[in-house]
Design a protein around this nucleic acid. Structure first.
Lengths: 224, 224
DNA sequence: GTCTATAGTACGATAGAC
DNA sequence: GTCTATCGTACTATAGAC
């Protein structure tokens, strides 16, 4: 409860179940993982999941909840630090994007939650919508505000699409990174979190700024 | 066999099964969809899938095979047309990106295959790797060549990462587009395929060019 | 090429003792 | 909070008649 640490060596049943579920969901998928497998892997009893979480879907949401709370705390912490450093000036777009993506890209390659991040969005049903509305509110609010200050000439619609595309790049990178094996990575090792972060920041910020430039040419003030 | 059309009103069992599977996989996911549901929806017998496709995984691959062949034929056709128009000049990056993404974004919003495109990459197992190696070879070869000519100063590594990010943006957009409901789309209706295509082209091309600019500043010739 | 019938297995969920 | 035992259901895959 309330712990933000790795939780990996905690011995209570609840967290052992979450760890086991995270691992199995990551390698096998939600539907291909049974309650029985999870309790077996966790060294818990078959009935324990129902007791602690209720039905299977609630367990899935609990797996995301635990990790997203950690992740979003890091994001807000990075954003806070940038804002303190900038004083009352608007932040550089790069700082905002980096604060959003770095906590995800820094997850170690063997962390099973990496693959789960992107799977959330492509899973059928309301999983993504539920999780986003339960756990992404504060992050969305803070980062939207920051980016509006950083790119005051961009229309809201542009920023929304930019955020959507950014999430796509990030989710695909952590979830489908196995497909990068084929690529000769002489100068940007995908296991080097910082170099991937900088590369993605460059790419995404150029994309975001391209919207502003396009908008500024025909009209003048008052974006929207 | 060999047909590239919509196949929706064909009456033979094989195609009815593929249509039903595509629909059910899209709304329910692969594992949550049973052989029984598919044959029921297709008006076919329970044993028909095993007869025509073999085990369930082979059916999944067949669903992707049929649609990706159509899609990739359109991509190459668009690229061919651009190259004819350009003569011996390198193509603008925009034309190349557009030829890659437009055939996907033009799939009607109600086409169940839209959601399946991104799910391929996040699905556990070797699905994406198998499908890519079976059906994306020609497209990868042709588009890589075109983009190398268009951005001769970019390193191969940059272009690979750029392509990877582009696929991420595209996959997320067609697969998670339900999450765009919340956005006020006063100026870029997500159902307007052409406006989304132009927006994504702008974003992605700016990202791709940002790699070149970054590369050109310190060194001079010979990328790599 | 399509059907019926079924073998063999796994599942989620819960009731009720401890 | 943890366990055993079990109900009722669903699954894939195939064998064998037509």
């Amino acid at each position: 409860m309330g712990q933000l640490g790795s939780c990996t060596d905690m011995t209570d049943t609840r967290n052992r179940i979450l760890d086991a579920a995270e691992r199995l969901f990551s390698t096998r998928g939600f539907h291909a993982t049974s309650i029985r497998m999870i309790t077996a892997e966790a060294g818990a009893n078959l009935a324990a999941i129902n007791y602690h979480f209720g039905p299977k879907n609630a367990l899935i949401r609990a797996v995301y909840a635990r990790r997203l709370e950690q992740l979003n705390a890091l994001r807000l912490q990075m954003l806070d630090a940038c804002e303190v450093r900038a004083g009352s000036e608007p932040l550089p777009v790069e700082d905002i994007v980096r604060a959003f993506i770095a906590p995800v890209l820094r997850l170690p390659p063997e962390d099973p939650f990496r693959r789960l991040i992107g799977r959330m969005y492509s899973e059928p049903g309301d999983l993504a919508r539920q999780i986003i509305s339960e756990h992404m509110g504060e992050v969305a609010r803070r980062f939207t505000l920051a980016i509006r200050r950083a790119l005051p000439d961009a229309a809201n619609t542009d920023l929304h699409w930019g955020a959507f595309f950014t999430i796509g790049v990030l989710a695909h990178t952590v979830t489908a990174s196995a497909l990068l094996n084929l690529i000769p990575n002489d100068r940007c090792d995908p296991k080097n979190a910082d170099s991937v972060t900088e590369r993605m920041t460059t790419f995404v910020c150029a994309g975001l700024r391209s919207f502003v430039i396009r908008e500024e040419t025909p009209t003048s003030g008052l974006a929207g």
